[in-house]
Nucleic acid binder design. Structure first.
Length: 588
RNA sequence: GGGGGCGUGGUGUAGCGGUUAACACGUCGGCCUGUCAAGCCGAAGAUCGCGGGUUCGAUCCCCGUCGCUCCCGCCA
């Protein structure tokens, strides 16, 4: 090795030792007769002192050194002179007196400062990702990611899980996200698909008798990106045989709690994860992925406004359309402009209008365009239901349930951001269970699964499949943290007949089902154990544990929102010969 | 596919219908033997993303376009 110690390792007890360090020049400070070099490697920083009186050769080399040069230094560990210690560095009590300095590589001045937390234009960071990765923030994040994955492997290994790799080149299926396709050279006109997840394969591993499987699995989905979505991402893919829902929930809860306590930079809000039904989550928070770090819950007030003189509410109540409200503490002094902005925001999220009532902080008087339509008793009942206090602002939406939920959920998050509730540095997990098996509404004349077609309906709801399919609840469960879906899974269907039936309900003919999923259906004829699984999103969880706002910050080489790689310039054109090999003609 | 934000020396920002385009950091040179966000002196460095339009005059206003980003749709 070109070094004997790492740059973060040396302490007072190493004084007197001769050591060799190698790494990057974080900073050079030239005092004339003595040059200080902060030598950085992955492990930390050490101050190297090059004294013209101690070694003139080393000194003349040190004079040529610039930021980000790669150097090797041999010297003696010394205590720093009294008063010269640097309490900001773990190695701040010592320094290395250089006897030998060698430049291993020179470096151009980097396009941005490595040693500064300063925000840099994202495209520049992505183009020079290898330099961005030198910076403390990303190094720290990659370390957290590594530790998280190691924790997962150890945890699951101790519990009898086998880590098994599944193919990256697999079969395209019509359901779900758009596939990334790989053309076959050997079979003209045919394509592999990169897996959106190893869903089918892990179920087949259960049929194979593996019983407890996991994989740190790369998944690919050709859909538009978001802060929490990249075209390729990593899931902890798991599947277990002979389990029931709560076995999986308990296992994952223990895994997540242990992992966060071991590696997270952001603390856990609670070691108990509340379990909400889908219905409860949507009624209370307006969404199936609630941020439960704060309240601001939706309150049903349809009954209180049904008989009011405000016609919109009364008519909606008669038409079975709900009226719901959220109470925002301390915003009762919002100006007309602020309220107009909020209404604008509500409209952008699907509202036709936004009603509001503001309670005066001192005299408790209720102001707002709709206030005059309510009797005093009605207003009292309303404020009691909402536990509203003087100085609060009440926001009200009345419409189709889905719209009301969407509007108030968006407002809830917006107000939480404004009030700082959504910036709280803690991780608040909850489970959402008892999802409907099918999504509301029908597309192209058939039902659509709300999770995927292998999710089992609740056993007691199977009779409803024919009579009232939308009333059927499933064995699906999601793990949610701070408003992000961080894991999703289900108990699967393991009976061929039921699987057949579900496939046909979601629009597969017998022939298509056989063509697309024949291997699954056939496998289920050879003794499939009851099984279920889950797939936590590693990128999202690590981003949350690092307090990062997007998953790019926890991936070594992420893509832009346009799904490009600015460093390597991918995707790129290929030569005609390659296209010919693949029997591909590109449309102009 | 749609909507919002951003784009000014290498970096981060300021600015404004007419400026010598400002500041900080960085870079380069000089001085300095105890600095660690070193200090002091000096210097270089900007077709104001690109194209078009309005105007006597555009970095600034308008349109288009490109790039980055956030959101909606989409993501079984």
């Amino acid at each position: 090795m070109l070094k004997t110690v790492h740059a973060g390792a040396l302490r007072l007890e190493n004084v007197g030792q001769t050591v060799t360090l190698a790494g990057w020049v974080n900073k050079r400070r030239d005092m004339g007769g003595v040059i200080f070099i902060d030598l950085r490697d992955r492990d930390g920083k050490t101050q190297v002192v090059v004294d013209s009186g101690r070694n003139p050769t080393a000194f003349s080399i040190a004079e040529q050194i610039r930021t980000e040069y790669v150097i090797q230094v041999t010297g003696v560990v010394s205590p720093r002179p009294q008063g010269q210690q640097n309490p900001n560095l773990p190695t701040g009590d010592i320094e290395v007196l250089a006897d030998q300095v060698e430049i291993l590589a020179t470096a151009k001045t980097p396009p941005f400062l490595i040693d500064r937390e300063e925000a840099v234009d994202e495209s520049l960071r992505l183009k020079y990702r290898y330099l961005d990765l030198r910076r403390e923030r990303l190094q720290r994040n990659l370390i957290v990611r590594h530790k998280a994955i190691k924790f997962i492997r150890d945890f699951l290994d101790e519990r009898g899980f086998l880590e098994i790799e599944t193919p990256i080149l697999f079969k395209s299926t019509p359901e779900g996200a758009r596939d990334y396709l790989v053309p076959s050279r050997v079979h003209p006109g045919k394509f592999y698909a990169l897996p959106q997840s190893p869903q089918q394969l892990k179920q087949l591993l259960m049929v194979a008798g593996i019983e407890r499987y996991f994989q740190i699995a790369r998944c690919f989905r050709d859909e538009d990106l978001r802060a929490d979505r990249q075209p390729e991402f990593t899931q902890l893919d798991m599947e277990i045989s002979f389990v029931e829902r709560d076995d999986i929930l308990d296992l994952i809860e223990a895994l997540i709690v242990g992992m966060i306590q071991a590696v997270s930079l952001v603390p856990l809000a609670s070691t108990q994860f509340p379990r909400l039904s889908y219905r409860e989550a949507t009624e209370r928070y307006g969404t199936d992925r609630p941020d439960i770090r704060f309240g601001l819950e939706l309150q049903e007030i349809t009954d209180l406004v049904a008989n009011s003189a405000f016609r919109v509410f009364a008519e909606n109540a008669a038409a079975n359309k709900p009226t719901k409200a959220i109470c925002i503490p301390g915003c009762g002094d919002y100006s007309r402009k602020q309220l107009t902005d909020l209404e604008e925001f509500a409209r952008a999220n699907g509202a036709k209008a936004l009603a509001w009532l503001a309670i005066h902080p001192e005299n408790g008087e209720i102001r707002g365009p709709i206030a005059k339509f309510f009797t005093v008793d009605q207003l009292i009942a309303l404020t009691e239901r909402l536990q509203a206090n003087p100085g609060d602002l009440i926001l009200i939406s009345s419409d189709e349930k889905a719209i009301v939920h969407n509007v108030l959920s968006s407002l809830r998050m917006e107000m939480a951001r404004r009030l700082g509730y959504a910036q709280k540095k803690e991780l608040a997990f909850c489970w959402v269970v008892d999802f409907p098996l099918f999504e509301e509404g029908e597309e192209e004349g058939h039902l659509a699964p709300s999770h995927h077609m292998f999710t089992a309906p609740k056993r007691e709801h199977i009779p409803l499949l024919d009579s009232d399919p939308h009333a059927v609840l499933s064995e699906q469960y999601d793990l949610v943290c701070n408003g992000f879906e961080v894991a999703g899974g289900s108990i699967r269907i393991h009976e061929r007949e039921l699987q057949n039936k579900i496939m046909q309900m979601i629009g597969f003919s017998v022939e298509t089902a056989k063509e697309q999923f024949g291997h699954m259906l056939e496998a289920f004829e050879y003794g499939a154990p009851p099984h279920g699984g889950i797939a936590p999103g590693i990128d999202r969880i690590v981003a949350l544990m690092c307090g990062e706002p997007n998953i790019r910050e926890v991936m070594a080489f992420p893509k832009t929102a346009q799904a490009t790689d600015l460093m390597a310039d991918a995707p790129s054109e290929v030569v005609q010969r390659q296209l010919d090999d693949l029997h591909i003609a590109v449309k102009s």
